[in-house]
Design a protein around this nucleic acid. Structure first.
Length: 562
RNA sequence: UGGGGAAUCGUUCAAUGGUAGGACAACGGACUCUGACUCCGUGAAUAUAGGUUCGAAUCCUGUUUCCCCAGCCA
């Protein structure tokens, strides 16, 4: 039944859409929307929703609107609108001319509210916030009806228009739907649909002092836009009866349907807006675009690609189970994309000086080497080779174990793309005893060729020519938290990984990297994938480690140590 | 405690009354001028107790566990 050539995902939401299409529920139309509130930056959890909504639209030749759900002026701003637009576009999606704002519907929403008052389905309630809470009851006790519940239509109309006119203070009155104070579902106990808030709105300014609540605005915005499937997260499941109540009262069919799926949780990070804000505000990270942040802007700066993120979202699937996705799946998707597309380069993070004693003093060879071992189309570049080099400190051990395929006394190793060299001697710092320089000899016949005598050289290490190398700063990132599910902890900040950022300021990159530009991505061979940071200055590149390469040696060695 | 949801390998998604499958992770091996990539292989799950049925992850009943809801946030 499955066609291997078409890999359109399938999930319970698409099953519902298939059914609706079969029964011609919306004349074959599929219309979704991504409805962020512009009060923060979007993160990988939003990306899941973006991919779901826009992905469904693509798959069914439907439409997906981008709609700012901006019904609470507090904290909303154009800055966030712009960041959301930028991020969703960067993720690879397009909404043509269908960028909408709930705030553009304020006048129509107001009319809907008046309609509700006229039909006796809404009333102005003048209880204080505390009294309203008290009247709401609890899980086990039904609520009590507001004494204002049976005001006349005329009085409600008058009061509501005066609310709009700004005659009352914040909190003096609210407009409520007249539903059922005894409902087992607390959402249905005469929910508030308008509140007075003397707060300028970033788009409507001071035009309004009353603002509609989410439950009222969202479903009607969907209806106004002709949304067929209104996809949201599980915590809104309780609100669905209210969603239906409003559209049934106010919208002649066919009506939008709300479908809920489980939001994404990612291991070793937090994905709640509140916590992300705290990380930024309390300077646990350096900003919304800190490469350790799970925000789209952070991941972009880190060097994650839209392809990788989209692929990740496709792989995690869509269901109603609470989940905690292993961050290694995200890393896998990032490596998968970068392995195919990132050019290779050599960069030494912890330099150890090497002198090739038998190499001519002033000779410089230009070694032409491929930018990608499996993709000749990515071309070649010239790598200067000379007598003095840097290699990685890790690639030499005074007393190496047997399976260590690198340099040590009596050992030889291949310099990537260049010669085989043999250890001759070392120079130690007299005070610390640390090895500060190696002397080696090279085998002139091994450039681009195996040793003539057929001996096997197992190890290959990366290097740069000391004279030609470009000094670079490299920033290594690790998981933000030390525990798998910090979001479930009351005091999650105490589980922050204090070593999530390591700055290496004296690295040496191959000369070709001197002209890199922010955003360019590479695989530094044997190390990982790296992305030039915006902090890069001419001649002084700064690289972010996107993700390390898988390292079965480190794993084995680590296990041995422990 | 009332209501709304969810329970399948370590993690996650699938199987829609008919062989429990994929991905990630783990482990073993092959290949290798990246201890990468790639390839091959291994182990690993239906929360629980009954019932219906030739046959149950799937249907029924009970039990257990987890998540959401008492904002004038979304």
């Amino acid at each position: 039944m499955t066609q291997p050539t078409t890999s359109n995902p399938t999930d319970f939401i698409r099953d519902i859409i298939d059914d609706d299409l079969r029964t011609n529920k919306h004349e074959g139309r599929v219309a979704t929307r991504f409805p962020p509130e512009p009060n923060g930056y979007i993160h990988i959890g939003h990306a899941k929703s973006v991919c779901l909504n826009f992905g469904i639209a693509q798959q069914y030749q439907g439409t997906c609107n981008l709609r700012m759900d901006d019904t609470d002026p507090l904290g909303e701003s154009m800055e966030f609108v712009e960041s959301i637009i930028h991020d969703v576009r960067w993720l690879g999606f397009d909404w043509a001319d269908r960028l909408f704002y709930a705030s553009d519907y304020f006048e129509r929403l107001y009319s809907f509210a008046v309609e509700l008052i006229r039909s006796g389905d809404a009333y102005v309630c003048s209880l204080t916030p505390d009294e309203i809470r008290e009247h709401r009851g609890s899980f086990t006790e039904p609520g009590r009806e507001s004494p204002y519940r049976n005001r006349s239509v005329e009085e409600n109309l008058d009061l509501f228009s005066r609310m709009r006119a700004g005659e009352f203070a914040d909190g003096a009155h609210v407009l409520r739907a007249k539903i059922d104070m005894a409902s087992a579902n607390i959402v249905m106990r005469d929910p508030i649909i308008y509140r007075i808030k003397r707060e300028p709105h970033y788009r409507t300014g001071t035009d309004w002092v009353i603002y509609p609540m989410y439950d009222f605005a969202h479903c009607l915005s969907d209806a106004l836009e002709g949304i067929t499937h209104s996809i949201c997260t599980l915590e809104f499941e309780n609100n669905r009866p209210l969603y239906d109540w409003f559209v049934e009262k106010l919208i002649p069919g066919p009506r939008p349907k709300q479908i809920e799926f489980a939001r994404l949780n990612l291991s070793y990070t937090v994905l709640s807006k509140r916590r992300l804000i705290e990380l930024v505000k309390n300077h646990f990270v350096q900003g919304w675009d800190d490469p350790r942040m799970p925000t789209v802007t952070g991941m972009r700066r880190r060097g994650y690609t839209p392809e990788a993120i989209r692929n990740f979202c496709a792989q995690i699937g869509v269901a109603k189970n609470d989940n905690l996705i292993d961050i290694s799946l995200l890393e896998h998707c990032v490596r998968e994309d970068l392995n195919a597309h990132a050019p290779r380069a050599l960069c030494v993070l912890h330099p150890l000086r090497v002198v090739i004693d038998n190499y001519p003093e002033d000779l410089v060879e230009e070694i032409e080497c491929p930018n990608h071992p499996q993709d000749p189309d990515m071309g070649t570049r010239k790598l200067p080779f000379s007598r003095e080099l840097y290699i990685e400190q890790d690639d030499f051990l005074e007393d190496p174990p047997k399976k260590y395929h690198r340099l040590g006394p009596g050992r030889e190793v291949r310099l990537r793309n260049a010669y085989v060299i043999r250890y001759e001697s070392m120079v130690k710092d007299e005070k610390t005893g640390q090895v500060i320089e190696l002397h080696c000899s090279y085998d002139p016949g091994t450039r681009n060729a195996p040793p003539a005598d057929g001996r096997k050289v197992q190890g290959v290490i990366h290097w740069v020519s000391a004279r030609h190398a470009v000094p670079a700063e490299v920033r290594l990132y690790d998981r933000l938290f030390r525990i798998e599910d910090p979001g479930s902890e009351e005091d999650y900040t105490k589980h922050l990984n204090r070593e999530s950022l390591e700055i290496l300021s004296s690295c040496y990159a191959e000369s070709s990297l001197g002209t890199t530009e922010p955003g360019l991505k590479y695989q530094f061979e044997r190390l990982g994938y790296f992305c030039a940071d915006p902090d890069t200055a001419p001649g002084k590149p700064v690289f972010n480690r996107i993700v390390p390469l898988r390292d079965s040696w480190a794993k084995a060695a680590g296990g041995r140590k422990g």
